[in-house]
């Protein structure tokens, strides 16, 4: 560990949000496997039906379980913090990524919320810099927390402007 972990976690509801997303994707996969198996069975290709059904079913279970685990890990390891001089975000359990954007370098702060995210009462905060690769996105915060974060970032960016 080179840098300490940032102080704040994102909203716990993000776990449910991501789980819904992951389950939807898994359900689509399951439906595809079921359709393919049915078609093979109807056409009388018993071996193919078994192969598709078993292979697809196994894939379905693996994808489902691993995406549920991935959601838990992504939630637990996404942390952010507004420090005195910068915004600090860490993410990822295996492929770890820590980004720091100095307040003086901040260009825009956007809050966005898709329909599903809004249904959870959450918004996403996007921070952009002059570099496309240097942007930061915090995926799920409650509206008041996000508003507070945006105000704080704007205030600090203004303070740092002269330095």
């Amino acid at each position: 560990m080179i840098l300490r972990a940032p102080a704040n976690a994102i909203d716990p509801r993000m776990r449910t949000y991501w789980t819904v997303q992951a389950l939807t994707a898994t359900a689509v996969l399951g439906a595809l496997v079921a359709t393919a198996t049915t078609i093979a069975a109807v056409l009388g290709a018993a071996t193919a039906a078994w192969a598709v059904g078993l292979g697809g079913g196994l894939g379905f279970v693996i994808v489902g379980v691993s995406s549920l685990v991935a959601v838990r890990l992504a939630y637990r390891h996404f942390r952010y913090e507004v420090t005195e001089h910068g915004l600090y975000v860490a993410r990822g359990r295996f492929w770890r990524r820590q980004q720091i954007v100095p307040h003086a370098r901040l260009q825009t702060v956007d809050t966005t919320a898709g329909p599903l995210l809004r249904a959870f009462g959450l918004v996403a905060v996007q921070v952009s810099t002059a570099s496309a690769a240097g942007g930061i996105s915090i995926p799920g915060l409650r509206r008041p927390v996000a508003d507070e974060l945006v105000t704080e970032l704007a205030r600090r960016a203004e303070l740092e402007e002269g330095t």
Binding site: I2, W95, R96, R97, Q99, I136
Partner: peptide
Amino acid sequence: AVAFELRSSPGQR
């Protein structure tokens, strides 16, 4: 620099 980034993959760690 407008942003600093530290990355590590499992193999790197």
